[in-house]
């Protein structure tokens, strides 16, 4: 698809709620490229290197220079980048892996991304995800469930978690995050 950005609007258009004990925000347009390939392949390592990244270990998310690449499954990675550059990144990866058995797909529009920020950010997601947050290390990508929908989350800052879900349930996830971060709901 072309670089045209005619009227592109993210699912919740960057909605932010800062009235709770943590700030929850939909981050707006975000580039995401899904990549299925042999994760051990040299061509893949080279293609990622060209993007300033490296092949992540299982459950790892590698961040360099504004781009990230996350391990999603034994044969799947997710590259995170600027929305406008996603199509280009996808094309580059496709070219670099042309001789490999690989599937590259721009999924920037299929997802919504959120941040939960603040000293008590963990407490918001503790209410929604069956994850031991005390054991979730920086640099770890955890695919799980947020209440009733699939989610992928990781520590994107010292007091910040990021979460990706499907676009169609962005409103539902925002609702979850809002009610779970409401003041008075701090877990003491």
């Amino acid at each position: 698809m072309s670089e045209m950005m005619t009227g592109a609007v993210s699912p919740l258009n960057g909605k932010t709620i800062a009235t709770g004990f943590a700030t929850v925000a939909e981050v707006g347009l975000k580039g995401m490229v899904s990549l299925r390939a042999d994760l051990g392949s040299k061509a893949l390592a080279k293609a990622l290197k060209a993007l300033g990244l490296k092949t992540p270990a299982p459950r790892e998310i590698v961040t360099e220079g504004g781009r990230s690449v996350a391990w999603m499954s034994p044969d799947e990675l997710l590259v995170l980048c600027g929305y406008a550059e996603a199509a280009g990144v996808a094309t580059d990866l496709e070219k670099a892996l042309a001789k490999e058995h690989a599937l590259v797909a721009n999924v920037s529009d299929a997802r919504a991304m959120f941040t939960v920020a603040g000293a008590r950010a963990d407490e918001v997601l503790m209410k929604l995800c069956p994850v031991d947050f005390a054991a979730l290390k920086p640099g770890e990508m955890r695919r799980t469930r947020s209440a009733q929908v699939a989610a992928a989350l990781w520590r994107s800052g010292p007091e910040e978690l990021s979460l990706i879900c499907f676009r169609s349930v962005a409103g539902y996830v925002m609702g979850l995050l809002e009610v779970s971060s409401r003041k008075g709901g701090e877990i003491s």
């Binding site: 609007v9 699912p11 209410k127 929604l128 209440a147 009733q148 929908v149 499907f166 676009r167 169609s168 349930v169 962005a170 409103g171 539902y172 609702g175 979850l176 009610v179 779970s180």
Partner: peptide, 16 residues
């Protein structure tokens, strides 16, 4: 029931 009531009783999938 927990948080699952009202608007977020179950996920509502929305098209753009």
């Amino acid at each position: 029931t927990g948080e699952a009531r009202g608007e977020i009783f179950q996920p509502l999938r929305k098209t753009p």
